[in-house]
Design a binder for these strands. Structure first.
Length: 1118
RNA sequence: AGUCCUGUAGCUCAGCUGGUUAGAGCGCUACACUGAUAAUGUAGAGGUCCGCAGUUCAAAUCUGCGCAGGACUACCA
C-alpha cells in the first residue's frame, strides 16, 4: 500500500517550496485550476500592472499575497478566475531612468538623440527587471498568467485607449482649457509636480513684497462701515507683478477682522484700513504705535517718529464678502464679465499666518486663486484679455513678459532672472510697481522678504504659476454618477471608500490629461492650425480612412505608422472637413489613463473580444487589490473611466492594503538600509511562512511592521505544530497501515472527543469560508491557527495519543485515524489560499496514501463545505468545560505541589444548573484521565458547605436602576446567603434605594461560588473546582508505578528500541517502590510492553524515581 | 495647510452596538511534563487603554480639543 510520506524528519519550508513549485510546473496545476472551472461561472480579477522598471520589494509580496488568496479561494469555490498579468510601461520614471543612463536631459531629446532612438531606449528599459519580477512571482507562489500579459505600449493596447478617449470626446467630456500649472518660461514648458519635487528645486529667494491698499466703493460697504470715509482693504503679495491681474480679494469667512485708523507711511495721509485682527501687531509694527483715543490719533505730525493707529471696529470675514473695490492698477479689464471682478470673496484657504489675512487674488497666476474665483457666485473672471486672434490670454506671455497693455512696463520680463546675463534692468517690474503704488497712496508697506520658491530644474530660473493649455477630461460633469456608483462598491476597509475616496470624489477636479513628453500614449486628436476644426481618432482603421482621405485631398503619400508612438504619429497629417490640414495635438496622455483603461485594453476591446465587456464576462471586476496609495491613482482611474464611458463600476470589491514598514515602524528606504530583500526572505523562511505571517499579523489595510522574527514565530508556532501533528499521524498510520480503506465510521459511533473536533472543524470551515467571502483574510488565518494549535494539537491529539499507539487495530482506533485524517485534509484545504505550498504538500501526502480524492493537488480540489449536522454547540461547550476544569485542577495540583502522575481520588464540582452535570458527565472520562483523578463528585446541596456570592449584572440592571446603579451594585454585592437562596428559589428579590423599590430577577444578578471551607478551590468564570488532595497508600503506589513506567519508557527511547519491541525489565529491590510493582505490575508491563518484570540486582542505570528513591533499572529485548 | 488612518503589557495584536478583575501570542521569571520532544503544559510579573475636557449611573469604547506617528493631496498671498 501507499505510505504516508515521512521523508521529512523536521519541517523545512523552503524545501517544500521547491518540491511544490516543481510539481506545479510539471503538472501545469495553475492552468488546470483555472480551466477545470466553467467559463460561465467566472470571478473577475484585475491585475494592477506593476512597472518592471524597478526591482520588486517585500511590499509587492504583501500586495500579491492578498490578491492570490482571494483568487485561489474563489477558484476552490468553483469559480473560473482568469488572472491576466500586465505591465505598466509608460511614464516619467522610465523617461528619467533612460535619461540618467544615457547621461542626457530632456533638452537633448531631438538634438543629441532622436525621439525615435529615445523611445527605443525606453522600450528596452521598461522590461529591464522583468526576469526578477517573474522570479519573485513564481517563488512566492503567486498565480498569475505571465505568458500572455497585457503591455501598455503595445499598439493594440493604445488603440483601445484611443477608443476610450474617443468615447469621452464624443460625449463632450474632452476639452482643451486653461489650468494653473508650474511653468518655466525660460524652458517654455510646464513642469509636473514630480519635477518640482526634485531636490534643490525649492530655494530661498529675496523678493520685493507689497501690502497694497485696495480702495472700497462706499455704496457697497456694509452699514457698520459707513461714516468713516475712504476705507482700504490691505492685501499682501510676494509677487507684485501679479497685481495688475488682480480681480478679487479673498477673506476667511470665520476669521476676525478689524478696521484701523492710521496714516500712510509714505504719503502721511490719514487712512482707514481693514486687516485681519491677528495680524494687526505684525503689520503695524516698528514705525507704528497703538493709541487709545481719537485725540491721540489726531495729534499725529509728519515729523513724529511713530505713526499712531487706532482699532475702531471688529467683525467677521463673512461680513466683508460682496464689498466691491476700485481696480488697483487699471491697465486692462477681463474680457469676460468684467462687472463681476474686483469684489471681496470667501475662501477656506485663507490663514492668519502671515500677510494681512486678506489674499490678493489673481486667478491667472495662482491655483488657489483660480479655484476661489471659480467657486464664487457669481464667478469672478480671471484677468484674461483677447489677443490678435481673439484668443483669451493672460497679461504675461509665454516668455514671461508683460503684454503691451501694460504700457510703461509692457514688454518687460516679470522676473529679472529671465533676462539674459547683463540685460536685466536695474529696477525689476516688482520694484516699479511698488514705487507706482507708493506714489498713488496705494502701498501700505513695501519690504524685502525671504521665502521659499520653486525653480525649474532645467534652467535654474524661478517657476511661474501660469495658466496653460491642456486637454482635460470633464470628470466634474460625471461627479454625481461617480459618487453614486462608489456607494455600491465594497471597500476594504470601508473608510477608504467612504472617506478618503468619497471625499476625493466630492472635491473632484477635471482630469488634466496632457503631458508634454515623449514616451507615452499620444493624444489621438488632430487640429487645424487655427483650432477651428478638430477630429478625435478612435481606432487604427479610423486613422487609415482619414490618412487615405488626407493623402487624396492634400496630395500626400502617408501611411499609418507601424508604431503608434511619437515621433511617427506626429508626422501624420489629416484633413479637416473644410479641407485644411490638421496636425496632432502634441501632448501625450497621463499614464494613469493607461492603467485605468486596462479592463478593456487588456483584451483589445472593442476591436476584439466585444463580448468580454458587453456581456460582462470580464467586466466589471469582482475583485481588485492594491496599496492605499492607489486610491487617487489606479482605483480612481478605473472608476472614472468605467463611470464615464460605461456608466458602470469597474470593480465590486476592492482591498486597499497598507504599507510594509520595517520592524520599528519606519518606512523602508535604501538610505536607512532597512530594506528587506524579498528573495532572501523567501529563501530563508519559505513563501508560506512569509505569506502567513504577513496576513495573520495585521489586517492587510493596516500598516505592517515587518519583522523577520515574526515569520520565524509563525513557522514554529503554526507550521511546526501542524507538521508535528501530521508526522504523528503518519508515524502511526504507517505502522497500522491505515489507508482509509474501511467504511467511514458514523459519527455517533465515534468517541465524544472525535465528534467534538469534527464539530469544531465544521464551525471553522463556516467561519473561514465566511471570512474569505467577506475579504477578511486576517481573521481567517487567526482562526485556523487557533484551531490547529489549541484544539487539534494541544487537546485532541494530546488526549488521543494512546488511541493511536495502543492496542489492536480496532474500530475505535480507526475512528481516531479517520477523525484526524479528516481534520488534516480539511485544514490543508482551508489554508491553501494562504499557504499554497505547505497545504499542497500536506494534501498530497494524505491523499496519495489513501486515494480518497481524485485531485492531484489541493488547488484542484473544492473548498470544504461545513456540515451543519456535524456542528454540535452543546458538545463544543462541554468540551470547553472539560478544558477549563482540567486546567483548574492542574493549577490546584501545581499550587499543592502534587505531580500529575500522582493519582488523586476525586474532584468536587459545585453545580448551579442541572444541565451542567449532564454536560460534564459526557466528558467526565476525558477530564479524569487528563488530570489523573479517579472520580468527579457534584455538589448540589450548597447550603452551609459552599458560600455563594452575588454580583450585579450591569447590562440589565443599568436600564432598571439608572443613576442608582452604584448603590444597587453595592447592595447586591452585600447580599447574604439567605437572600441569594431566596433569589434563586423564587426568581425574585427586591431592593430599596432612596425610598424607591426595584424588583430583581436572577437575570440581574450573577451568582458564583465564593469558597469551600477546607478545600482547595479554583474558579474560572462560572466554573468552580475543588480538589481532594488526600493521599492513600494505594494512590501512592499507583503514582510510583506511573513514575516507573515513565522511567522505563525513557530508557527504551534512549536505547533506540522500536516503538513495538517487547522487553524484559530488571529492577533493583527497593522497599518503597515494591508495593507499586506488586499492586500495579500488570499495568506497568502493559504500558512498557514488558513480558516480565524481575526484581533483582542488575547493572542497569541508577534511575531517580522520586526525590528520595533511586533504583537501578535495566531493560533488554525479549 | 487639508483629508484620512493609527495610538491598549517590553514586542505584535484582539477587545462587536458603552456594562465593572482590559485579553491572546511572543519575550521574561519559576515550576512541571516527557513514546509529538530542537516540542508541550501550568503559574507569575508586566497596563494613568496617548493626553485633556465633556456626555453618562457607567467610557479603552461616544463627542470635542490637543499630542505623536503614518498615508495621500495641495502647495501658500
Amino acid at each position: 500500500m501507499a505510505k504516508y510520506n515521512d521523508d521529512l524528519k523536521q519541517l523545512d519550508l523552503p524545501h517544500i517550496d521547491q518540491l511544490m513549485l516543481k510539481f506545479w510546473e510539471e503538472n501545469d496545476i495553475f492552468n488546470k485550476s483555472v480551466n477545470q472551472r466553467p467559463v460561465d461561472n467566472s470571478f473577475v480579477f484585475y491585475e494592477g500592472p506593476p512597472s518592471a522598471n524597478g526591482m520588486p520589494g517585500i511590499h509587492h509580496v504583501m500586495g500579491r499575497t492578498v490578491k492570490d488568496i482571494f483568487c485561489r479561494f474563489q477558484t476552490m469555490k468553483g469559480k473560473r478566475v482568469e488572472r491576466k498579468g500586465g505591465w505598466d510601461t509608460h511614464g516619467l520614471p522610465i523617461e528619467l531612468s533612460v535619461e540618467k543612463e544615457l547621461g542626457i536631459t530632456k533638452e537633448d531629446i531631438g538634438k543629441k538623440i532622436s525621439v525615435d532612438d529615445y523611445n527605443h531606449k525606453c522600450r528596452e528599459t521598461v522590461m529591464r527587471y522583468k526576469d526578477l519580477w517573474d522570479d519573485i512571482t513564481r517563488k512566492m507562489g503567486y498565480w498569475v498568467d505571465l505568458d500572455n500579459p497585457y503591455i501598455t505600449f503595445n499598439n493594440e493596447y493604445i488603440e483601445s485607449v484611443w477608443w476610450l478617449l474617443a468615447q469621452l470626446y464624443n460625449k463632450g467630456l474632452l476639452y482643451k482649457g486653461y489650468t494653473i500649472q508650474p511653468y518655466s518660461p525660460a524652458a517654455g514648458t510646464g513642469l509636473s509636480s514630480h519635477e518640482l519635487n526634485q531636490p534643490g528645486c525649492y530655494r530661498d529667494v529675496t523678493d520685493t513684497t507689497v501690502v497694497a491698499q485696495f480702495l472700497t466703493k462706499p455704496d457697497t460697504l456694509p452699514d457698520f462701515l459707513h461714516g468713516y470715509g475712504d476705507i482700504f482693504i490691505l492685501a499682501w503679495t510676494t509677487t507684485p507683478w501679479t497685481l495688475p491681474s488682480n480681480t478679487a480679494l479673498t477673506v476667511g469667512p470665520k476669521i476676525d477682522y478689524v478696521l484701523v485708523k492710521t496714516y500712510n507711511q509714505y504719503t502721511f495721509k490719514p487712512i482707514n484700513v481693514i486687516i485681519g485682527k491677528a495680524l494687526v501687531e505684525k503689520q503695524l509694527a516698528g514705525k507704528f504705535m497703538q493709541v487709545e483715543t481719537e485725540d491721540q490719533l489726531n495729534a499725529y505730525q509728519q515729523s513724529d517718529k511713530k505713526i499712531p493707529y487706532l482699532v475702531v471696529k471688529e467683525f467677521k470675514g463673512q461680513d466683508l464678502i460682496g464689498i466691491r473695490y476700485e481696480q488697483l492698477l487699471n491697465y486692462a479689464l477681463p474680457y469676460d464679465h468684467p462687472e463681476n471682478a474686483f469684489r471681496v470673496i470667501g475662501g477656506s484657504f485663507v490663514t492668519t499666518e502671515d500677510g494681512t489675512g486678506i489674499v490678493h487674488t489673481a486667478p491667472t497666476f495662482g491655483a488657489d486663486d483660480a479655484k476661489a474665483a471659480r467657486e464664487a457666485v457669481p464667478e469672478v473672471p480671471a484677468m484674461l484679455v483677447l489677443d490678435e486672434h481673439d484668443n483669451p490670454v493672460p497679461l504675461v506671455d509665454l516668455q514671461g513678459r508683460f503684454r503691451k497693455e501694460l504700457t510703461e512696463i509692457g514688454g518687460k520680463y516679470v522676473k529679472n532672472e529671465y533676462y539674459n546675463e547683463g540685460e536685466a534692468p536695474e529696477k525689476s517690474v516688482d520694484v516699479e510697481i511698488a514705487i507706482k503704488l507708493k506714489e498713488e497712496n496705494r502701498a501700505f508697506k513695501v519690504e524685502k522678504y525671504v521665502h521659499n520658491y520653486p525653480h525649474c530644474w532645467r534652467t535654474d530660473k524661478p517657476v511661474l504659476y501660469y495658466p496653460l493649455d491642456s486637454w482635460f477630461i470633464r470628470s466634474t460633469a460625471m461627479k454625481d454618477k461617480m459618487i453614486e456608483l462608489n456607494k455600491t462598491i465594497n471597500w476594504k476597509p470601508a473608510h477608504t471608500g467612504e472617506k478618503r475616496f468619497g471625499n476625493w470624489l466630492e472635491n473632484l477636479n477635471d482630469w488634466n490629461l496632457s503631458r508634454s513628453r515623449y514616451w507615452g500614449i499620444p493624444l489621438p486628436i488632430w487640429r487645424t492650425e487655427d483650432a477651428s476644426e478638430e477630429q478625435c481618432i478612435e481606432s487604427i482603421a479610423d486613422l487609415q480612412v482619414e490618412v487615405a482621405k488626407a493623402n487624396e485631398q492634400l496630395g500626400l503619400n502617408q501611411t499609418v505608422p507601424a508604431d503608434l508612438h511619437r515621433p511617427y504619429i506626429d508626422e501624420v497629417i489629416l484633413v479637416s472637413q473644410s479641407g485644411k490640414p490638421m496636425k496632432r495635438e502634441l501632448d501625450l496622455i497621463d499614464v494613469w489613463f493607461d492603467s485605468g483603461s486596462m479592463p478593456y485594453a487588456q483584451w483589445h476591446y472593442p476591436m476584439e473580444n466585444r463580448d468580454f465587456i458587453d456581456k460582462g464576462t470580464t467586466f466589471p471586476a469582482d475583485f481588485i487589490a492594491e496599496g492605499v496609495d492607489q486610491t487617487r491613482g489606479w482605483f480612481f482611474t478605473l472608476h472614472a473611466i468605467a463611470s464615464m464611458v460605461f456608466g458602470s463600476v469597474a470593480y465590486k470589491n476592492v482591498v486597499s492594503n497598507g504599507l510594509v514598514l520595517d520592524k520599528n515602524g519606519v518606512k523602508m528606504s535604501k538610505r536607512l538600509g532597512n530594506v528587506i530583500d524579498p528573495f532572501k526572505t523567501l529563501e530563508d523562511y519559505g513563501a508560506d511562512a512569509t505569506r502567513w505571517y504577513m496576513i495573520s499579523n495585521a489586517q492587510p489595510w493596516d500598516n505592517l511592521k515587518f519583522d523577520l522574527d515574526g515569520i520565524d514565530e509563525v513557522r514554529r508556532k503554526f507550521f511546526g505544530t501542524l507538521f508535528n501533528t501530521y508526522s504523528f499521524f503518519a508515524l502511526y498510520a504507517n505502522i497500522d497501515k491505515f489507508s482509509y480503506s474501511e467504511a467511514v465510521i458514523p459519527l455517533e459511533k465515534r468517541q465524544e472527543i472525535d465528534r467534538w473536533i469534527i464539530s469544531l472543524l465544521n464551525s471553522l470551515i463556516k467561519e473561514v469560508d465566511n471570512d474569505l467571502a467577506n475579504y477578511e483574510p486576517t481573521d481567517a488565518t487567526r482562526k485556523i491557527m487557533s484551531f490547529v494549535d489549541e484544539h487539534l494539537s494541544n487537546w485532541y491529539v494530546r488526549l488521543c495519543r494512546r488511541r493511536f499507539w495502543k492496542g489492536e487495530y480496532s474500530e475505535d482506533k480507526i475512528a481516531a485515524y479517520q477523525t484526524l485524517y479528516e481534520c488534516l485534509t480539511t485544514i490543508s484545504k482551508l489554508m491553501s489560499p494562504f499557504a499554497p505550498m505547505f497545504a499542497d504538500w500536506l494534501y498530497k501526502n494524505l491523499n496519495e496514501a489513501t486515494g480518497k480524492e481524485v485531485h492531484i493537488s489541493v488547488h484542484l480540489s473544492d473548498f470544504p463545505i461545513a456540515d451543519r449536522n456535524h456542528i454540535d454547540l452543546a458538545l463544543e461547550q462541554r468540551m470547553d468545560y472539560a478544558q477549563r476544569i482540567s486546567s483548574l485542577v492542574l493549577s490546584i495540583r501545581k499550587k499543592e505541589g502534587i505531580r500529575v502522575r500522582q493519582p488523586l481520588t476525586k474532584i468536587l464540582l459545585p453545580v448551579l444548573d442541572p444541565d451542567f452535570i449532564h454536560q460534564v458527565d459526557s466528558v467526565r472520562d476525558l477530564i479524569l484521565s487528563e488530570v489523573n483523578v479517579k472520580d468527579i463528585e457534584y455538589i448540589t446541596d450548597t447550603d452551609g458547605f459552599i458560600r455563594k456570592k452575588a454580583k450585579a449584572n450591569f447590562k440589565t440592571l443599568g436600564r432598571i436602576l439608572g443613576k442608582h446603579m452604584k448603590t444597587g451594585a453595592q447592595m447586591i454585592q452585600e447580599m447574604d446567603q439567605a437572600s441569594i437562596s431566596q433569589l434563586e428559589k423564587t426568581n425574585a428579590f427586591s431592593i430599596e434605594i432612596e425610598g424607591e423599590s426595584f424588583n430583581l430577577t436572577t437575570e440581574d444578578v450573577e451568582i458564583s461560588f465564593d469558597e469551600i471551607p477546607g478545600w482547595q478551590v479554583a474558579t474560572d468564570r462560572e466554573v468552580t473546582v475543588a480538589l481532594d488532595v488526600t493521599l492513600t497508600e494505594d494512590l501512592i503506589a499507583e503514582g510510583l508505578a506511573r513514575e516507573l513506567v515513565n522511567r522505563i519508557q525513557n530508557i527504551r527511547k534512549n536505547s533506540d528500541f522500536n516503538v513495538t519491541d517487547r522487553i524484559i525489565v530488571d529492577i533493583e529491590k527497593n522497599n518503597i517502590i515494591l508495593p507499586a510493582i506488586e499492586k500495579f505490575g500488570d499495568y506497568i508491563r502493559q504500558e512498557v510492553l514488558a513480558n516480565q518484570i524481575n526484581i533483582n540486582d542488575n547493572d542497569g542505570e541508577l534511575t531517580e524515581i522520586t526525590e528520595e528513591v533511586s533504583v537501578k533499572i535495566a531493560i533488554s529485548k525479549a
